[in-house]
Design a protein around this nucleic acid. Structure first.
Lengths: 248, 248
DNA sequence: CCAAAAGTGTTCATGCTACACCCATGC
DNA sequence: GCATGGGTGTAGCATGAACACTTTTGG
């Protein structure tokens, strides 16, 4: 499958339309509980089908634009956000997902920094929703969000993507809060500290966060030199890929 | 994103062409060593670009065909095979992957039963190659195969897909040989037995394989009632998805 | 009875969980 | 000095790797 397939059928190339959309996650502090939780921005459809309903930001794929670029651009045009993490999620192409036409959508998922999300434009046609309590969305977008949520939660457990929600430096308590918010489960601070330190993905700075009512916590930064081992074919660089050990 | 994106740009739907291709894996016994290893069928291109070079089986996506169906059909048309396992791998859409045109390829990967692969047609334009020693393929197909290989090996460790290489019933030694062939590493038979039995994915029959020179091994069959927890959005059924426990 | 694979038992190391405890700071 | 979160120590349990050992068959 790359460009032209090995076998070219008699009929001309398919006329299915190609779109790109993105599921964007950020952490917002809950108004009530203080605890942060996952939110995502949606866009109101201004035409049929599904006019008036909420949908994922996206757009048609221009012939001369890379898939990931198109995702980042449409995301930015509609929400004003710039993602710190962006990865392909899945390609949805069921025949009945758009009434009357065949649309194949390459879907990405993105993480944005919390304070940037707070600055983000909200308006009549763009609004943030709690990821676990969405209205009925246009097309198959509820299914897509569910899948993206599952991917985020699964991936957080074995990969180190939590820093995409945070700034340059952060305390381990902040990092732990991200994990707790995404996984919706309290985490033992002592064990979390050791797990993160053992993972070598984080570097201690000699700075401490001031202004806390109690003992000032040390600030850390992420070690960008460690290879992500992401699951994206792009990671399959010249040096190959780290394969974890296996059981018998 | 589903069908029509929430934001419809001024220009008409993109004119990128949509293709579907599949990386097909089967186990062949090595002529020399007796040990089985991974092989895959490739198709020779009969026109430009890359005329004469080997490529993954695939074809253009018809407007009225599901993505997975198209993968299974093109796979069967070119190689005569019917996969026991088929899953979407990734969508490749780099601008330069096909000279002169923009082709976006939704790529699947498939596993076929070993004895069916042995019966498969081989000809002037279809040939099997060892997965770890491929020639230079058309387009970006080498990258795609590398990625599919990584996915297969990674997934075999946490999912139970090895049975797709085997028939209805099999011995634990056969199942272990599949793991050893894919992971290219010897596995302790005693520990493998316990791991598989603990996973509850396999059911003991009361039959034994006859004709061995030594003690006859028990035959097992796969338990199709256990939910695969695959990583495919389709698995995200009405009952949700099993989320494994997490550490602190 | 011997060889060889099937199948069982046991030990050891490792990693994670739970939780007790000390440290440093603002008030 | 006291409350509180930062940070360290450690024992218990589960998992899995290594490997000794018993069982069952064909020759």
């Amino acid at each position: 499958m790359s460009s032209a397939p090995a076998h070219e059928p008699a009929h001309e190339p398919a006329t299915a339309e190609l779109a790109v959309s993105t599921v964007i996650f950020a952490l917002h502090a809950e108004p009530s509980s203080e605890l942060p939780s996952l939110w995502l921005p949606l866009v109101r459809r201004t035409r049929e089908p599904f006019e008036g309903q909420w949908a994922l930001p996206g757009g048609w794929l221009p012939v001369d634009e890379e898939l990931g670029k198109a995702a980042a651009r449409t995301l930015n045009e509609t929400t004003g956000l710039t993602p710190k993490y962006l990865e392909q999620l899945y390609t949805f192409g069921a025949l009945d997902r758009s009434p009357g036409r065949r649309v194949v959508s390459v879907v990405y998922w993105a993480l944005v920094q919390s304070d940037e999300a707070a600055r983000a434009a909200e308006g009549e046609n763009v609004r943030w929703f709690p990821a676990d309590d969405l209205p009925e969305l246009a097309f198959d977008h509820n299914l897509i969000v569910d899948y993206a949520l599952w991917r985020l939660r699964t991936k957080l457990e074995y990969s180190r993507i939590a820093h995409a929600f945070l700034g340059e430096t952060f305390t381990l308590a902040q990092l732990r809060e991200v994990h707790e918010a995404v996984l919706q489960r309290p985490i033992d601070p002592a064990n979390f500290r050791r797990t993160i330190e053992a993972s070598k993905t984080v570097i201690a700075t000699d700075e401490y966060l001031a202004g806390t009512p109690h003992r000032p916590p040390r600030l850390y930064r992420f070690d960008s030199t460690v290879h992500s081992a992401n699951g994206d074919p792009a990671d399959l660089g010249p040096l190959g890929r780290a394969t974890p050990g296996k059981a018998s």
